[in-house]
């Protein structure tokens, strides 16, 4: 029956094949089946942004997409962003600015921030704040995150 489905996808540059329950969402698949625990689950209703990851180059909510919908797609998690060096500049800036505390929002926040930087977003504090306003952080005052993203944009575009 179709309640479990064979899928093939690329995750962080590696080919992955799996048989998954239809109802398994993408972030649970990555965390539980592939042990890629860097993506976090914060609300499971698409509001908090903790599970934000990249599918075919676009940021998505990992809790609002079924694993089976990722069939044939290229998925990049925080582990992939870090290992490939794509997020190195942002990681350095987040460290320097102390743009994280507990670290639970951080992988999703980085994915959103990277989306903004890669799309050519400006070092404009209001625009950055608006862009990351789908990612909840309970620890920082957001200011250090905005500072860090601004830093990266200024550094890479000068």
């Amino acid at each position: 029956m179709s309640r479990s489905i064979d899928i093939k996808l690329r995750v962080n540059g590696e080919d992955v094949g799996a048989t998954v329950p239809a109802r398994l969402n993408l972030v649970d698949f990555l965390r539980e089946e592939l042990c890629l625990t860097g993506s976090h689950v914060g609300c499971e209703h698409g509001v908090c942004g903790a599970c934000t990851l990249t599918v075919d180059g676009d940021t998505v909510r990992g809790c609002l997409m079924l694993a089976t919908q990722a069939n044939g797609k290229e998925v990049t998690t925080i582990e992939g962003l870090a290992d490939s060096g794509q997020s190195t500049a942002l990681q350095a800036a987040f460290t320097k600015r102390n743009a994280l505390q507990c670290g639970f929002c951080t992988p999703g926040m980085l994915a959103s921030a990277l989306g903004y930087v890669n799309a050519g977003g400006a070092a404009d504090r209001d625009a950055i704040r608006q862009h990351i306003s789908g990612n909840y952080c309970r620890c920082t005052g957001y200011q250090s995150i905005v500072d860090a993203i601004c830093d990266v944009i200024k550094e890479t575009r000068t």
Partner: peptide, 12 residues
């Protein structure tokens, strides 16, 4: 320990 959390290597 920021680097660890920034690379998705936290252990919650």
């Amino acid at each position: 320990d920021a680097a660890r959390l920034l690379q998705g290597r936290g252990r919650f």
